[in-house]
Amino acid sequence: MKLDLKYKNKEHIFDIREKEGVPYLVYPLLEETGIIKHGFSTRMGGVSTENCATMNISTTRGDAPEAVTENRRRIAAAIGVRPEDMTYTHQTHTTKVAVVEEKDRGTRFMETDGMVTNVPDICLVTFYADCVPLFFVDPVHKAIGLTHSGWRGTVGRIGEVTVEKMAENYGTDPKDVIAAIGPSICQDCYEVSEDVICRFRENFPEDCWPDIFYNKEDGKYQLNLWKANEHVLTKAGILKEHIATTNVCTHCNPDILFSHRTAGEKRGNLSAFLALK
């Protein structure tokens, strides 16, 4: 299945994989650690219909339960994990990051936007439709994190919270962490109001502002969540050369990726997957 994605630049950031008709995206930088399985879903390869067509595994979008179950089976088989090992968040734009233990396998963490674990085969799963997926791999202590970062999470530096949680629980040194910023809305497509920008001015140093936003004549602003999260991750101690930043925008690719800015509430969710081998 050929995915005709539109890219913001020509850098080779990720590979497109497919198994049994299910395409997904992977980051070579993460794969090179040799300790994880991971992926990011597209709209393709599932059985859902109408607004959720076709690959939606979220139970919050009004999708048919039997379709969600089949989609979970398909994407799990493609990535090489088991549906019963998938452990989920119910995201509410918090900066709460859960520590996932063996007893949590297959459960859902409510009002939680990030997870960390060092338990093999537990597959962390988070959901998206323009917000930013953040992947974290510590190849030294064999620990991982997966986090959902919308503008509120980015202002709250949830990426840094995730790294701190890994350090606290697993002894992670940020300099060892390999990270990826996943497909999400780009600056060209992400117009916000001044009240949002005020929050960024309060929480990011002034020398970062030109990277993160610019204002327009109508009083609106264009916000760069990719660059903002890069600043968060480097401030957390992750080396710049250890960060792979997406060059694919969800809003620019509405036929391939779900986008809230494109479809509003009438849509499915994309999903990020990360598991230790």
Results as ranks from 00 to 15, higher is better:
Met1Ser: 12
Asp4Glu: 15
Tyr7Ser: 04
Tyr7Arg: 15
Lys8Phe: 14
Lys10Asn: 14
His12Thr: 11
Ile16Phe: 01
Gly21Arg: 04
Tyr27Trp: 15
Pro28Ala: 14
Leu30Ile: 12
Glu32His: 10
Glu32Arg: 15
Gly34Arg: 09
Ile35Trp: 08
His38Ile: 05
Phe40Ser: 03
Gly46His: 07
Thr49Cys: 02
Glu50Pro: 03
Met55Asp: 12
Met55Ser: 12
Ser58Arg: 02
Pro65Ile: 04
Pro65Glu: 01
Glu66His: 14
Val68Ser: 02
Glu70Phe: 02
Asn71Trp: 01
Arg72His: 04
Arg72Cys: 11
Ala77Glu: 12
Ala78Asn: 13
Pro83Ile: 13
Asp85Trp: 07
Tyr88Phe: 14
Thr89Asn: 00
His90Asp: 13
Thr92Asn: 08
Thr95Leu: 03
Lys96Met: 09
Val100His: 09
Lys103Phe: 06
Thr112Leu: 11
Thr112Tyr: 05
Val119Phe: 01
Asp121His: 10
Thr126Asn: 10
Tyr128Gln: 04
Ala129Val: 07
Pro133Tyr: 03
Asp138Ile: 11
Pro139Met: 05
Lys142Cys: 03
Ser149Pro: 05
Gly150Gln: 03
Gly159His: 06
Glu160Leu: 07
Val163Gly: 02
Lys165Asn: 07
Thr172Ser: 05
Thr172Ala: 13
Asp176His: 07
Asp176Ile: 07
Ile178Trp: 01
Ala180Glu: 04
Ala180Phe: 03
Asp188Ile: 00
Tyr190Ile: 02
Glu191Gly: 01
Val192Gly: 09
Glu194Arg: 11
Ile197Phe: 00
Cys198Ile: 00
Arg199Gly: 06
Phe200Cys: 03
Phe200His: 01
Phe204Glu: 07
Phe204Ser: 14
Glu206Asp: 08
Ile212Pro: 03
Phe213Pro: 08
Tyr214His: 09
Asn215Gly: 14
Asn215Ala: 15
Asp218Ile: 04
Lys220Trp: 02
Tyr221Ala: 05
Tyr221Gln: 00
Tyr221Asn: 09
Asn224Glu: 10
Trp226Met: 07
Leu233Trp: 07
Ile243Asn: 00
Thr250Pro: 05
Cys252Gly: 08
Asn253Phe: 03
Asn253Ala: 03
Pro254Ala: 13
Phe258His: 01
His260Asp: 02
Arg261Phe: 12
Gly264Pro: 10
Glu265Trp: 04
Gly268Arg: 02
Ser271Asp: 12
Lys277Phe: 07
